[in-house]
Simulated scan of single mutants.
Amino acid sequence: MKNTPDRLLASGIKDALFGEGVTVVQPVNLYGCEIGDQCFIGPFVEIQRSVKIGARTKVQSHSFICELVTIGSDCFIGHGVMFVNDTFQKGGPARGDKSLWKSTQIGNHVSIGSNATILPVSICDHVVIGAGAVVTKSIHEPGVYAGSPARKIK
């Protein structure tokens, strides 16, 4: 055992594109993503390569937005929301094999409660996802969804 790792990587902002009036609270790890006008990105957020976030969307602290996610405008992503692009379709992690990853599309005016988990799905406009929900299937009808797996409750 030793006192330092062989490789130490710093978090930060690299190759990200920002619209006008964007607020970012550090520390964050943002790379290769696009953040629309007047967005808010809270601390301890990671937004990966090729993610696109629409105007006026707020992403609260401790959220993780992986590659292949698109989020519309006027959305709210609560604290600790996790997006998943690897469904372990071969019984374990894809280990970097992007051909096994799947995409997620979030519409406009979507609010996702704290600690929700969003698997690769499409969510239409005007949807509320309750705190702690696990979204396993696409949502095609506006409304309020909660539970694990998430289902329409209102």
Rank of each mutant, 00 (worst) to 15 (best):
I118A: 11
W101K: 03
S63K: 01
V144H: 05
G80M: 11
S138T: 05
I77W: 08
G107S: 07
R56I: 06
A16T: 15
N115W: 06
D37H: 12
K152V: 07
F76D: 12
P120G: 13
E67C: 02
V135R: 03
G54Q: 02
A133R: 04
V134N: 11
K2T: 10
R49M: 05
V127A: 09
R95L: 15
K52D: 04
S114L: 06
V22G: 01
S111W: 12
S122I: 01
T70W: 02
P27I: 12
N85G: 06
D37I: 05
H109E: 07
P93I: 15
H62D: 10
G91C: 10
M82E: 15
S61I: 00
H126M: 00
V128Q: 09
I129K: 05
A150Y: 02
P142L: 06
V22E: 11
K152M: 13
V144K: 01
Q48H: 10
E20K: 15
S50H: 13
G36L: 02
S99A: 15
K154N: 12
A146S: 12
V24R: 10
V134R: 04
H126G: 04
V134K: 01
F83G: 09
F18T: 07
E20N: 15
N115D: 07
A131M: 12
D125N: 13
W101G: 02
D86F: 10
T70K: 11
T70A: 12
M82W: 03
V22W: 10
G147Q: 07
Q38T: 00
S111D: 12
N108G: 06
S50D: 13
E20G: 00
A16F: 06
N3L: 14
S114Q: 08
H79G: 01
Q60Y: 14
P27L: 10
V128R: 11
E46W: 00
R7I: 14
V127P: 02
P5E: 06
I118E: 09
H126W: 10
A10E: 09
V28I: 10
C124Q: 07
R7C: 14
W101S: 09
K90I: 09
G72D: 05
G80K: 01
Q38K: 12
V110A: 09
S50C: 01
S50P: 00
G42H: 03
S103V: 01
D125V: 07
A16E: 12
S114D: 14
Q105R: 15
I112L: 08
G96P: 09
Y31S: 13
S148M: 14
G12I: 08
G72F: 04
G91S: 11
F18N: 06
R56D: 02
I53A: 03
T70N: 13
V69G: 03
Q38V: 00
C33I: 08
R95V: 08
R49G: 01
P43R: 11
V24I: 15
C33E: 08
G32W: 11
G54S: 06
E46M: 13
A16D: 08
Q38H: 13
G32T: 06
V25S: 12
T4S: 15
P142G: 08
V51P: 04
N108W: 03
H126Y: 13
R95H: 14
C75K: 02
I153R: 04
E141L: 05
R151L: 09
G143L: 04
G143D: 08
K98Q: 14
G130L: 04
M1A: 14
S111A: 15
L68A: 11
I77D: 02
G32K: 08
K58N: 08
V25P: 00
